[in-house]
């Protein structure tokens, strides 16, 4: 080998070594020496696909390794502020349609960020890497909702066939335009920004020739308690006619013309139990194609 080639080879090798020593990344292999608990089952984790392995989330690790594992030379999520932790995850996870409003969500405002619900290293569910079963995670803060799902009539969340995320978007949702736009702010929107209820209750979605305006104007919550209720059909009141009459009372100032929501017919005698279950006759109460009074 000529001395010139040898010199060039030496130069190339030394520059490679120099570049490597300057590279702040050291590779996941080095992490295994100390963090075997976190790394031994990591092949099951979706984050194995990240380009730089452990350092994709925890940042460059060479300085941390060279300093003998000094904690402040690596990104440790337990030491990050909620905002920083959120920013870190969103570097990769911001592109999904469902996370468009994460920064303005009620969770972010309450400093509930990714690591409060997701556990990358000790996930209870391989899908979505949740720290616990979904309902238990939500219940841990929303204790009143846990109570509602224990009522006699409820959506079957505890039974495991309905998930909180079927109706809610924990990452934040756009303003709910099926009612005035202020609340609720975490409800999953069905297509066309509709209330999530119609995703399963498709027959209530319409369009109908005669829409019951309450469904479109103030949403399903006008009459129903979506989580759970002591009343059949998750109704807000135990007696149906009071639920209807609370709006259909002709009180001035309300309705489309400000002349009140139409009063019931004079032929109805509310003292007669026959008239006390309004939906016995007004069977198509969510909307009808054949009758403006929802009778068929």
């Amino acid at each position: 080998m000529s001395p010139v080639i040898r010199a060039w080879g030496l130069l190339l090798f030394s520059s490679l070594m120099w570049a490597q020593s300057k590279d702040p990344y050291i590779g996941s292999q080095a992490c295994r020496a100390c963090h075997s608990t976190q790394t031994q089952d990591f092949f099951r984790n979706a984050h194995t696909k990240a380009d730089r392995g452990c350092e994709s989330c925890h940042g460059p690790g060479r300085a941390h390794v060279n300093a003998g594992g000094k904690k402040d030379l690596i990104i440790a999520f337990s030491a990050l502020s909620p905002q920083k932790s959120l920013d870190n995850c969103l570097q990769c996870h911001s592109k999904d349609w469902s996370r468009n409003n994460i920064r303005s969500s009620s969770h972010s405002q309450a400093e509930v960020v990714c690591s409060n619900c997701h556990s990358v290293h000790k996930a209870a569910t391989p899908k979505h890497l949740l720290a616990n079963q979904q309902k238990d995670l939500c219940y841990s803060c929303h204790t009143d909702v846990k109570a509602q799902f224990s009522m006699p009539f409820k959506h079957r969340v505890n039974e495991g066939t309905v998930l909180c995320a079927d109706c809610h978007n924990p990452h934040g949702a756009p303003a709910p335009t099926w009612r005035m736009g202020q609340r609720p702010r975490m409800q999953q929107h069905a297509q066309a920004n509709e209330q999530s209820c119609v995703q399963c209750h498709a027959d209530k979605r319409g369009p109908f020739l005669f829409e019951h305006a309450a469904v479109r104007v103030d949403g399903c919550g006008s009459c129903h308690a979506a989580h759970g209720s002591a009343n059949p059909r998750l109704l807000n009141r135990p007696v149906v006619f009071t639920l209807c009459l609370e709006c259909h009372n002709g009180a001035p100032g309300f309705g489309r013309q400000g002349q009140g929501i139409p009063l019931q017919s004079g032929s109805h005698n509310m003292a007669d139990p026959r008239y006390q279950n309004c939906t016995t006759c007004h069977v198509k109460i969510h909307g009808s194609n054949a009758d403006a009074r929802f009778l068929r």
Binding site: R237, F241, T242, L245, E246, N249, G250, A251, L263, Q264, S265, G266, S267, H268, N269, M270, A271
Partner: peptide
């Protein structure tokens, strides 16, 4: 909530629904 309804053919106004 204020109620108005018919009972025995008579319009009852100013009744209230309490829950």
């Amino acid at each position: 909530t204020g109620l108005a309804y018919f009972s025995l053919g008579e319009l009852i106004e100013n009744d209230r629904s309490l829950y």
